[in-house]
Nucleic acid binder design. Structure first.
Lengths: 233, 233
DNA sequence: TTAGCTGAGTGACTACAATCACATAGTAGC
DNA sequence: GCTACTATGTGATTGTAGTCACTCAGCTAA
């Protein structure tokens, strides 16, 4: 399918590029759609594209030697993934799979590399991105160190709460929350355990579900206390 | 203490820089020594230096909210740490502590940033470094996903084995192996559990200790089988 | 030599999360 | 509306790693 420069400029990281550059990139890029559970990027393969997510939600996952799934991060619309090879030409370290039906734009890595030569700003942005990724991985790693399981779940939930709800301890809504299974995979837990923690949170009126696509966090303050360990479940 | 350009050029990443640049950097840098268990970098603080390790061994660690220590990575002589702020001016995400007495060279981040402007090569190298860090964090994360504890320990040990011993399945030696405690912290285990796994490995003549500073891996093939799960302990 | 420290080895006990095996609820497709 | 999934909820059981409480070994520094 045809990619227009307008489509590309919908992505915050590409928006600041000069129109001519966008036009050229658009020519070389392609739209790809994936069904739920589709494999967007394959681990161990030298992917030659950076994948920009237009619609839907992606997850970076890995598999342990014995086949167990390990959740690494989520990708939201407007964001991108598979950029690691931009820096070291190495293979994609983890799988990226579609959690919902998704629409993506694949931009060839080599073209993007050329663009970074002329636009140090983009290079800088990529660097910041990568740094953010390291920070996220580090935070996630320390989350896994928590010996208390419900605290782990609450911390993860807390990370999904929007920034200003976090700041002001307001009640808030998480859109398209991950399934219990997806959370379990992120936190090295079994699905049942996550389910049980949610059960307690719901009976305590701390969170409330509303269909599959909404999760109300009614009592942010309590969630925060549970997340930082000042209160036990 | 005075830093000489020669000292700086001992670091592979700085070696390719022009002598004039090295001389300038040397002027602005300083040698810092730390005792075992000394805090080299503090989490949450905007450290204004990149720390190059000359002698000894460092470990990146984090602490969970409840105070449990979480091991992230090791830094060996010639390598550096604390470079994340180079990319996003953000705070240091994790602590770096000295596992042994260490000698480091602190190079001001701002000076280094100026140098990267004139030396894209250094910038590229930093990018590769960061990419490698992401890969390492990802690998470590999937290690933590292993439900079988002894496999986890064996995998970690396997990562400590030198590359060519890994390739040719030769017996080899690990210098200054981490203590059981350090391994436990890396792998989210208790010290006792690591101890028990080592006990089994030793009675099976797969590894053998030789003082505190040497660990012989006598049966690399067996260690590999245990690491990849084709054999159970 | 002795004291003091850190690292390592080990048994007993226990808590707790995984697993299994279901039931039930929602949703999406036809 | 019916069917087929996928997601979720829940009890019973069990394995296993954490914890505690020691001992012992090795190093270093008075």
């Amino acid at each position: 399918m045809q990619v227009t420069p307008e489509l590309l400029s919908a992505f915050p990281s590409l928006k600041p590029l000069p129109p001519a550059t966008l036009a050229r990139l658009a020519q070389e890029s392609e739209v790809r759609k994936f069904a739920r559970r589709g494999v967007v990027m394959t681990a161990g393969v030298r992917e030659e594209f950076v994948c920009f997510l237009f619609e839907g939600r992606l997850q970076g996952v890995d598999f342990t030697i014995d086949g167990r799934e390990v959740g690494l991060y989520f990708v939201e619309p407007g964001d991108f993934c598979g950029e690691l090879g931009m820096f070291d030409h190495g293979p994609q370290p983890e799988f990226v799979i579609a959690l919902t039906a998704v629409v993506t734009v694949f931009v060839p890595m080599e073209s993007l590399r050329l663009v970074t030569m002329e636009n140090p700003m983009l290079l800088k942005l990529l660097g910041q991105r990568l740094a953010a990724r390291v920070r996220q991985l580090t935070r996630q790693r320390s989350l896994l160190g928590l010996p208390n399981i419900s605290q782990r779940v609450c911390c993860q939930l807390w990370l999904l709460v929007s920034d200003d709800a976090r700041q002001h301890l307001q009640s808030s809504v998480i859109n398209n929350p991950p399934t219990h299974m997806e959370i379990a995979i992120m936190l090295n837990l079994s699905r049942e355990t996550v389910s049980r923690v949610f059960q307690i949170l719901q009976t305590r009126n701390i969170v409330r579900r509303d269909g599959t696509s909404l999760l109300h966090v009614s009592d942010s303050a309590a969630l925060k206390r549970l997340a930082d360990g000042s209160e036990e479940l």
